[in-house]
C-alpha cells in the first residue's frame, strides 16, 4: 500500500468509526426499542470478535496454522474460566507463546 493510500485508509476509517460513535449518541431512544436491532448488533459483535480470535490465533497470511498461539489461547481460556482479570489473561497468553517460542516451538 502506498503512503497516500495508507493515510487515506487511516483517515477514512477513523472518520467512519467516529461517525458511528457520534451517531449512537444522537440516536433517539425509541429507535433502540426495537429488540431486533439490539439482538442483531449484539450477535454481530460476538461474530466479529470470535472471527478475530480465529484470524489472530490461527491464520498465517492465507493459511491456517497451529503454532504457539494455540496453547496460548488455551491458557487464556482457562484463565477466563477461572475469572482471571483481563490484563492477566492477556499477559498469560503472551507469556505462554513467548515461552514456547523461546524453547524453539511454534
Amino acid at each position: 500500500m502506498t503512503t497516500a493510500a495508507l493515510w487515506t485508509t487511516v483517515l477514512v476509517a477513523s472518520l467512519a468509526c467516529f461517525a458511528l460513535k457520534l451517531a449512537g449518541h444522537l440516536v433517539p431512544r425509541s429507535w433502540l426499542a426495537s429488540e431486533r436491532v439490539s439482538r442483531v448488533t449484539s450477535l454481530v459483535t460476538v461474530a466479529l470478535l470470535v472471527s478475530l480470535v480465529v484470524v489472530q490465533g490461527f491464520a498465517d497470511g492465507r493459511t491456517l496454522a497451529v503454532d504457539a498461539r494455540v496453547p496460548a489461547l488455551a491458557v487464556a481460556a482457562l484463565a477466563l474460566a477461572l475469572r482471571a482479570p483481563f490484563i492477566l489473561v492477556v499477559f498469560l497468553a503472551a507469556a505462554t507463546a513467548a515461552g514456547l517460542r523461546a524453547l524453539g516451538w511454534g
Partner: peptide, 14 residues
C-alpha cells in the same frame, strides 16, 4: 507473544 496476546484479548472481550 504479542500476536497471542491480541488473540487472547479478543477472546477475553467475547
Amino acid at each position: 507473544g504479542l500476536d497471542a496476546a491480541a488473540a487472547a484479548a479478543f477472546l477475553a472481550l467475547v
